[in-house]
């Protein structure tokens, strides 16, 4: 019996960790995830999720993690936890927003509206600060 408990407990721990990921994972996030791109022309944009949101005073996940309704952006739906590249593919079909455009619009668009935050190429696509 005891011999069975240990693997089970380990497995449960793994599952728990897995489930906790969306809530905890961003603490380690230093850059925008670029796995969705086949070729990477620039360094990934520097982005510390929690620090950014704290600084920008963003509490609602939907401020960024929006959903989709009838091919349009749906600001109500909360899609946090779903990788952006699941919906925004690197090469978008006509009428859809490509991953690069989605990122640029999301970051640069907001920064320009808010008149805060980096807006130039080199202020995001740069080596991680040490």
């Amino acid at each position: 019996m005891k011999q069975r408990t240990i693997p089970f407990a380990l497995a449960a721990l793994v599952v728990a960790c897995f489930l906790a990921m969306p809530a905890l994972g961003q603490q380690d996030m230093k850059t925008i995830p670029d796995e969705g791109f086949k070729t990477k022309t620039r360094l990934p944009a520097v982005f510390n999720h929690d620090e950014h949101n704290e600084k920008a005073g963003i509490a609602e996940c939907t401020a960024c993690h929006h959903g989709e309704k009838d091919g349009k952006r749906d600001p109500e739906a909360d899609t946090s936890g779903i990788p952006c590249s699941d919906c925004h593919s690197a090469v978008a079909k006509p009428g859809r927003t490509s991953l690069m455009r989605a990122f640029h619009k999301q970051c640069m668009g907001c920064h320009m509206d808010q008149k805060k935050g980096p807006v130039t190429c080199g202020d995001c696509h740069k080596p991680l600060p040490k």
């Binding site: 022309t41 490509s98 455009r101 668009g109």
Partner: peptide
């Protein structure tokens, strides 16, 4: 230039092939 195309891509939705950086 990629950087220029990105601006058009982001704000106007126009895109075309770029030279390698």
């Amino acid at each position: 230039l990629m950087g220029h195309i990105v601006l058009f891509d982001t704000f106007r939705g126009w895109s075309w092939p770029a030279l390698p950086d």
